[in-house]
């Protein structure tokens, strides 16, 4: 973590914030501030350079054309890849997750290169869009409770040999490959298809990012009663799809 405050970088809200993705930024920020950490939030528009000195980077979802534009600009800028090689913590959702992989299918139906920060390749599903509540068990190595999320995507993401699945689905599609995986990560670069936004339903993920950034094993407790109530409701809902 840099000198005095935690630098929270929100990547390209002008292109990748279609699904309430600001929510993840707000939850991480709020939970840091509840631990009396001072937070410097940096929103980086796609015509600005990505700072390489951030502690936590968040990337959201978007429509097909903005996704291609974001990939083009991130490749040209290079800042996010440099930050990753410096060990930055990066958490991505949906279209952002696909961009962090090796490649995805763009709005023109062509293969578009991603940043290759997670060992995954994304294609587009032929069937119906995956929409609905998801319940999944997060990789035990991460020490987190069950993942509850809402998926809303057409993409299918295949994991390469070095990526670990972020979670295994109990209900829902996740990566859409049929192998029960949901999301993926390499070291401190994470990707998921979960909306909600995912931090609102899983504040422990926000805490995990904070612990990684601070290099600590534990954080002071917070009053999580509303998060817990929402989690209980959505976990029950995932087992009874509408």
């Amino acid at each position: 973590m840099s000198d005095s405050s935690l630098r929270l970088v929100w990547v390209y809200p002008d292109l990748l914030s279609t699904y309430g993705d600001q929510g993840n930024v707000l939850v991480v920020q709020r939970r840091a501030e509840q631990r009396r950490l001072s937070v410097e939030r940096v929103d980086v528009r796609s015509d600005q350079p990505i700072p390489t000195s951030g502690d936590i980077y968040l990337i959201g979802g978007g429509e097909d054309r903005p996704q291609r534009l974001a990939a083009e600009r991130l490749r040209r800028d290079g800042g996010l890849s440099r930050a990753a090689s410096n060990g930055a913590i990066i958490f991505s959702v949906c279209a952002g997750y696909q961009i962090l992989g090796h490649e995805f299918i763009n709005d023109l139906g062509e293969r578009e290169a991603g940043l290759g920060l997670i060992d995954v390749i994304s294609t587009r599903g032929e069937g119906e869009r995956c929409v609905g509540d998801v319940l999944a068990d997060i990789d035990p190595q991460l020490g987190l409770p069950q993942l509850t999320g809402f998926e809303n995507h057409q993409g299918i993401t295949h994991l390469g040999p070095t990526a670990r699945p972020f979670a295994r689905t109990v209900y829902g599609n996740g990566n859409g490959t049929g192998d029960g995986t949901e999301g993926a990560y390499n070291d401190t670069v994470f990707g998921t298809y979960m909306h909600g936004p995912v931090m609102a339903r899983n504040p422990q993920i926000a805490d995990l990012l904070l612990k990684l950034a601070l290099d600590v094993n534990a954080l002071p407790p917070t009053d999580d009663r509303w998060y817990e109530a929402l989690r209980a409701e959505r976990i029950a809902a995932a087992s009874q799809p509408a």
Partner: peptide
């Protein structure tokens, strides 16, 4: 719409 993510916008 069944996706409530928009509440965060």
């Amino acid at each position: 719409g069944t996706d409530t993510s928009w509440l965060w916008d």
